[in-house]
Write a protein that binds this DNA or RNA. Structure first.
Length: 958
RNA sequence: GCGGAUAUGGCGUAAUCGGUAGCCGCGUCAGACUUAGGAUCUGGUUCCGAAAGGAGUGGGGGUUCGAGUCCCCCUAUCCGCACCA
């Protein structure tokens, strides 16, 4: 009987579904293991072959763990909120829920055909009210929490209210938007509005006017990770910086813990590095530079706000951040960012016009322009001076947009000799450059002759007062100690990470459980969740520029009756307007892995029992492109829930595997420029300039050979095409590009399943190369894997119960060991090779023994579950192969009686000798001398040394 | 510019501890079976060479009896960040 995958695969898929073979309970005496895939956004295009790569890998591992006796949680769901469905809705009027539902159905159909072992009873969808209830719930908890820097933990905000009433901010160290300082008396004297305003400064989910990435085209703000090179990731529209009142999550409070936690997880170094980079921890010093009041009579009293509170003799001053406190003796100018509030106050009348012009120009520059013209130096002198607190020199204060408002204090001390940006600025405006670090002690040169600054943190201080002669590292400490002593600065840590903007001016997202009473936001009572996404007439922003929820008729909160009512009832006494923004995509994906543990629970996010059993994700498989988005937000989300005592592990994903992207392999035909209807086969193209390369659909190309008839039918303009053939074939060119519709290189898994079956697709995707590696999709090799499965199938045609020979047992036991090792280290491409070798060997040995073939089925079951299940039942088993026991290998079959030792002379391999497995150096040496070939290399000479490595090699040094 | 990764036949790749480089597959060549083959099977296939032999893991150096593997320098490609003080 032939290998009829088209009949076998659907039959077993139905069997698995009907018998709920992949249903998993939260109660088991087996050890637990949690294998998770990054759930997909169900786009209209459906799955391409790149998507299942990670799913197949994780499925293999999940099935393997199950066969090894684990209770394996392996769920799947959909990240169902998102922009494409909404854009589609704006264009067509079709409700995003319908589009999404349709896409999900298509995804499910495609996934089912590949034979995954997902427990679909646990499916979650982020747009399902039963799910987003808990997204909203978490938001309320964040809103009701603050972060204590001393205990490095989130705490209930109610606690803070009590403390404020007793001691004000005295002795507190809190994560906040703006540092504040008030006494208990002040707090107690404030009214509700003022108190709420103050509390907002500390909440972990807070509302604030912040510079945001505004994308006018999409009509929404975007998070930093959603913007690349000043363009939106989705759509590629320009993004500008704009000050807007937005919800944010105070993820910066967790910056240090997010860095530290990376030490404890098994992720690739590169991804950890990406996250460390994104968090951008840098150590340095905060230093207060006094203004030179004498030189500048117009410093306003407001500048006092910049004074260190501990300074007994207040002098107007401002704070800078530097990672190079050791270079403070080399400061030759100061720079403020164009947004700095001090600019207005210090600018001299003579400079005022110039400064104002510059600031206006800088503000009107788009983020994209600014980033594109990084090399262009611009700036203007304010006319004001600061005093270097260590040298008491007067230093000019400039304004330039190379200093960013959002990092540090938006002001720097410029040390042109030792910072490339300051160097460029100094050269451009002809400002002095002073060397204060040299590679060797006391060796200095004239910076005027330098081509670039000396940025490295190595060498010795020179020209630097009391630190002269010290090593750079020591000088840093010495300067920090000194400024600390003087009360003008201290050691500090800065992070590049910004708080996560949490509002989106869109329709298709989770509504905020928030209403506004006298413009103060209040959260809904938890019992009233979920707050359902309202129906709207239009999905566009309103005429007044409000988000789409502004179109909703029923979008007001009746505080007394605790329900959503008509907008017309808003009286701002008992009925209030609800928040019009929705939450961003990462809201729903930040905690979904926890919900899988207990997906049907209506009373809790997930039960204590469930989380205590599953703990956290043991293995997470997904793309590295989420390194600065989802993978940071989810860690933050998890750490917050950990602080609440809801989860038991403070890191959500113990081990992370990043599957490489699958690129497309495009095919081209070459059209002659001289003759518009003539297509020249690749090998006959003499000069690339004579032809135009045209993308051709990969579905009408087989092994780079064009199907000429299909090509003529493909598009009308090719109907009369003529060809210059080589060997009667038209050979296409190819190139590796992104998989995309417009390049006609999208490979759809369904077509391959129809043609070769799911098992072949699964094996082939693994055979392509290491899971972690990015690689182009190339269908050319799939035949080899298909041939292997047909061969494998034939082995089971006549299974005999006779006992197997030692040689046969050896083959299978070696396979057991190899496959087990391969799976454990995620090397699935070599596993597939091992199956091929094993099958070749057994076929050659004409082996048909059950003793050998049965364990082999269990080995292959994780990779090719359908064929394994079919043959397993053909062998007479009643139960599914999924619950079989992973075979154990027997050492005795792995040890050879004799070993062919390679014999090398001076490291160069010359011949081999047969030796018993256990033999001594003397015996080995005697055998080498006795060997015929050795005379040639040895002659009469005695070797200097004989190196004998058991089971490895004999090397003779002459 | 900073950080990370990668580099092996015509192609995808393998070599798990520093020990015979190129397993397995594609492609290709030769053969068998066949009316036929886009089916199946057998054998060859890193390069140079008729062979003996020699060279060979991006380039250069080093450690070692022995290096694809470890160390240093360089080059190329990919990825991440990017005026982050």
């Amino acid at each position: 009987m032939d290998y009829n995958f088209g009949e076998i695969e659907p039959r077993w898929q139905n069997y698995w579904r009907e018998h709920r073979v992949y249903h998993i309970d939260n109660v088991s005496d087996r050890p637990h293991y949690y294998v998770l895939d990054m759930f997909p956004y169900p786009s209209g295009a459906g799955l391409h072959v790149g998507h299942p790569l990670g799913y197949i890998a994780s499925d293999i591992y999940a099935r393997y763990k199950r066969l090894r006796g684990y209770n394996v949680l392996h769920p799947m769901g959909y990240d169902a909120y998102g922009l494409p469905a909404e854009q589609y809705a704006i264009q067509t009027g079709q409700h995003p829920a319908i589009t999404t539902e349709k896409n999900i159905a298509r995804y499910r159909e495609q996934l089912d055909k590949i034979g995954f072992s997902f427990d679909w009873d646990r499916e979650v969808r982020t747009c399902d009210p039963k799910y987003y209830k808990w997204t909203q719930w978490t938001f309320i908890q964040l809103f009701n929490s603050y972060y204590c820097n001393q205990c490095q933990k989130a705490r209930p905000i109610a606690e803070l209210v009590d403390v404020f009433a007793k001691q004000g901010t005295e002795g507190l160290d809190l994560a906040c938007t703006e540092p504040m300082d008030f006494s208990a008396e002040e707090w107690n004297s404030w009214d509700e509005a003022k108190r709420q305003q103050v509390l907002m400064n500390y909440r972990l989910a807070y509302l604030a006017d912040i510079p945001v990435n505004w994308c006018a085209e999409l009509g929404t703000v975007l998070a930093n990770d959603e913007v690349v090179n000043g363009l939106s990731v989705r759509g590629g529209y320009p993004v500008e910086r704009k000050l807007m009142r937005q919800w944010s999550l105070r993820i910066t409070a967790y910056a240090q813990r997010l860095v530290d936690g990376l030490e404890r997880v098994e992720w690739t170094d590169s991804l950890k590095e990406i996250q460390r980079n994104w968090i951008g921890r840098s150590e340095g010093a905060a230093v207060w530079f006094p203004l030179d009041v004498k030189s500048n009579g117009n410093v306003l009293p407001g500048a006092q706000a910049y004074m260190p509170q501990f300074d007994p003799q207040p002098v107007p001053s401002f704070e800078i951040f530097t990672t190079r406190p050791d270079t403070i003796f080399g400061v030759t100018f100061m720079v403020l960012c164009p947004e700095h509030e001090l600019i207005d106050q210090i600018t001299t009348p003579e400079q005022r016009q110039q400064v104002q012009d510059y600031v206006t120009w800088a503000k009107n520059r788009s983020e994209r322009e600014r980033q594109a013209e990084v090399k262009k130096v611009s700036g203007v002198f304010t006319g004001a001076y600061a005093i270097n607190p260590l040298t008491e020199e007067r230093i000019p204060i400039w304004v330039s947009d190379y200093v960013l408002a959002g990092y540090g204090t938006g002001a720097i001390m410029a040390v042109p000799a030792h910072d490339s940006r300051d160097f460029a600025f100094a050269r451009h405006f002809n400002l002095p450059i002073r060397q204060v670090v040299s590679l060797e002690k006391d060796v200095v040169s004239d910076p005027a002759t330098w081509e670039e600054s000396m940025d490295a943190k190595t060498g010795y201080s020179v020209n630097s007062g009391f630190v002269t002669g010290m090593k750079v590292k020591d000088a840093m400490k010495a300067v920090i100690n000194k400024i600390d002593e003087m009360g003008i600065g201290h050691k500090t840590v800065n992070y590049r990470l910004r708080d996560a903007i949490f509002s989106r001016q869109r329709y298709w997202g989770e509504p905020f459980p928030v209403y506004y009473k006298n413009n103060i936001p209040y959260t809904l009572p938890e019992e009233c969740l979920p707050l359902l996404l309202p129906e709207v007439k239009e999905f566009k922003p309103t005429a007044t520029g409000e988000p789409p929820l502004g179109h909703a008729d029923r979008w007001a909160w009746d505080e007394k009756n605790r329900c959503v009512v008509e907008n017309s009832k808003i009286d701002n006494v008992t009925v209030f307007p609800l928040e019009l923004s929705t939450m961003p995509g990462f809201a729903g994906s930040s905690g979904y892995y926890l919900r899988y543990m207990d997906p049907a629970n209506d009373d809790r996010y997930f039960s204590e029992q469930a989380v205590n059993y599953w703990q956290n994700v043991d293995l997470y498989v997904g793309g590295a492109e989420h390194g600065t988005g989802h993978l940071i937000y989810a860690r933050f989300w998890n750490k917050f829930l950990y602080d609440l005592g809801m989860v038991v592990k403070d890191e959500p994903f113990q081990k992370l595997i990043n599957q490489g992207m699958i690129q497309g392999r495009s095919n081209f035909v070459y059209r002659s420029k001289a003759d518009n209807n003539l297509y020249i086969s690749k090998g006959l193209v003499k000069d690339k300039d004579d032809v135009t390369a045209i993308h051709v659909d990969i579905n009408i190309v087989d092994n780079d050979v064009l199907d000429i008839e299909k090509f003529r039918q493909w598009r009308p303009e090719f109907a009369d095409a003529r060809f210059e053939l080589e060997d009667d074939k038209y050979v296409c060119g190819w190139e590796i590009e992104k998989m995309s519709k417009s390049m006609f290189n999208v490979q759809n898994p369904d077509d391959l399943v129809v043609r070769y079956g799911a098992d072949t697709l699964r094996l082939y995707e693994m055979f392509l190369g290491p899971v972690e590696q990015a690689k182009p999709w190339d269908t050319n090799g799939i035949e080899g894997v298909f041939r292997f499965l047909k061969k494998f199938w034939r082995m089971y045609e006549n299974v005999s119960d006779e006992s197997a020979s030692k040689t046969e047992l050896k083959i299978v036991h070696q396979a057991i060991k190899k496959i087990t090792d391969d799976i454990e280290r995620f090397s699935f491409n070599t596993s597939v090779s091992t199956f091929m070798i094993c099958t070749n060997d057994l076929t050659a040995a004409k082996c048909n023994k059950r003793e050998v073939l049965e364990p082999l089925l269990v080995l292959i079951a994780p990779f090719a579950p359908h064929i394994a299940e079919e043959l397993w039942h053909q062998l007479g088993h009643e139960t599914t192969v999924c619950d079989a026991e992973w075979p154990k290998f027997d050492e005795q079959y792995l040890v050879e009686d004799s070993v062919k030792y390679p014999v090398s002379f001076n490291g160069k391999m010359r011949f081999t000798v047969d030796l018993p497995t256990k033999c001594t150096q003397e015996e080995a040496w005697a055998a080498v001398k006795a060997a015929e070939e050795s005379r040639k290399w040895l002659g009469d000479a005695e070797p200097k040394k004989v190196i004998f490595v058991p089971n490895k090699i004999i090397n003779i040094v002459l």
